[in-house]
Simulated scan of single mutants.
Amino acid sequence: MIVSEIKVSGIEDVEKRLGNMKKNAPTVVSRAINRAIQNVKKNMGKETSERYFITSGEVKKTVNVTKATKSRLQAAAISQGAGIALSKFKVNPKTPVRYRGASRSPKVYRAGVKKAGGVKPLDGNPKSFVAVMKSGHVDVFSRTSAKSLPIKQLYGPSVPQMVKNEDIMNKINRDANETLQKRIDAEINNLLRRG
C-alpha cells in the first residue's frame, strides 16, 4: 500500500486574505485540497506509465481517494494491489506456444517491466512461455519442474511498488503542492469576486 496525503493544518493566512468572509476559509481549503488530491491520482497514473510498461488506467484502478471536508482538512490517495500479471507489461512476442501443427512456437519470449531496462529474454530453466488456458485466458507461465504440469503464472511488481519509486513520489508531491496553492488562490479570488 502506498499513500499520498494532503493536509492543511493552519488556515489563518486564508482567513486573513478573505477578510470579513473568513468563515468561508474551511470551504475554500477543502475544495482546493480535493482538486489537488484528484491531481495526485491522475499523476500516479501518468508518472508510473511514463517509467513502466503499464497503462495509466491500470494504475488508477488501484487508487482510492478519500476527500477532505470542511471539518477535516486532509485528503489521501491510496494505491493498493498485488503483483500484476506479467502479460500486462511488455511481452514479445505475445504469440502463444503451439503444441501441434506446422507453425513453430517462438524460441524465446522477452518481457520488460521498466522502460529504462527495455525487454529482456525470459531465460529460466524450464523456459517461460505464453499460453492460452481452457478458459481463454492468455498469460505468461513457466513450468515448476521438468514435467509439463503444473505450471505457474508469472507476475511483475504491484502498482504500489512502482508508485513508491522516489522520482515518481517526488514529482507527485511537488505537483500536489503547486496545485493546492493555485487552487487556494483561485477559490479565494472567486469568492471575493462574487462578494
Rank of each mutant, 00 (worst) to 15 (best):
L191E: 13
K67W: 01
D123M: 06
R143D: 11
A186N: 11
I184T: 03
K171E: 10
N177W: 00
V132C: 06
V132A: 15
K147N: 15
N125E: 11
K120A: 11
A176H: 11
A25L: 09
E47H: 12
V130F: 08
N20M: 06
K16T: 12
R174E: 12
T144Y: 08
T144P: 02
V108S: 09
N64D: 10
Y52M: 00
S148H: 10
G101P: 04
G45H: 03
E166G: 12
I84F: 02
R35S: 11
G118V: 11
E47N: 13
S142Y: 03
Y52F: 15
A111Y: 00
Y109T: 00
M162I: 08
I188S: 07
A176R: 04
V140E: 09
P96Y: 10
A68D: 04
L18N: 09
R104C: 01
S158Q: 00
V65C: 06
A76D: 07
L73M: 12
K7V: 14
S30G: 10
G156R: 01
Q74I: 05
S142C: 07
G117C: 00
P157E: 04
L149Y: 13
H137S: 09
L73H: 13
G195I: 02
R194P: 01
K127W: 05
G19N: 03
T48G: 04
I6F: 08
G45C: 04
E178D: 03
R110T: 11
L154M: 15
G112W: 00
S56G: 07
N24M: 15
E15F: 03
N92V: 13
K60S: 05
K120D: 04
T27I: 13
K7F: 10
K94L: 11
S148W: 10
V8N: 10
A68R: 02
T69K: 12
A176K: 06
V119P: 02
A102Y: 09
T55C: 07
I2E: 15
S103G: 10
K41S: 05
T55P: 01
Q80Y: 10
E166R: 14
S145D: 07
N170Y: 08
Q161M: 11
S71W: 09
D167N: 14
N189R: 14
M169W: 01
D123S: 05
R17T: 05
S128R: 06
K67N: 10
P157G: 03
I184E: 03
K114H: 08
I188M: 09
V140Y: 04
T179N: 06
S103A: 15
K147A: 15
P126R: 09
A85W: 03
S128C: 09
D185E: 12
G101F: 00
V63Y: 02
K41D: 01
M21C: 02
I84A: 03
E5T: 14
N125P: 00
L154D: 03
A111P: 07
V119K: 00
N92H: 03
S158A: 15
S145N: 14
I37H: 02
S30D: 13
R194T: 07
S105Q: 11
P26S: 13
K120S: 05
